[in-house]
Amino acid sequence: MSGRIAGLGDRELVVFTFDDQEVNARQGDTIAMALWAHGQVTVRNSSSEGQPRGVLCNMGICYDCLVVVDGVTVRSCTTLVKPGMTVGRGGKS
């Protein structure tokens, strides 16, 4: 089970949707980390096989955590959450 480490201080709530489910994130979270803390480790389907994929490097190198935000494909590990943002799975669907 994933979640948040307690006692590190709290930040403003940011609500966004991923594949039509509502996700509670915090100001300053990347999409990838908000989803991981929410228990959602799969963010993409791989390009030709359609296999589930998630974060690999978490630092903008691997492009395995691609998601679609407002029609644009972005790295979920380097893109910050914004209130009301609509995020969809990256890759083949």
């Binding site: 994933s2 979640g3 948040r4 991981w36 296999q51 589930p52 490097c57 978490n58 630092m59």
Partner: peptide, 25 residues
């Protein structure tokens, strides 16, 4: 190694030290 949940060591560091996220159980 492509299964979600398999990440680099660096990714875990970012999770914990960079975002205060619990990687798993």
């Amino acid at each position: 190694w492509t299964l979600p949940g398999v990440v680099t060591a660096g990714a875990l560091q970012v999770m914990v030290r960079g975002f205060g996220v619990v990687p798993g159980k």
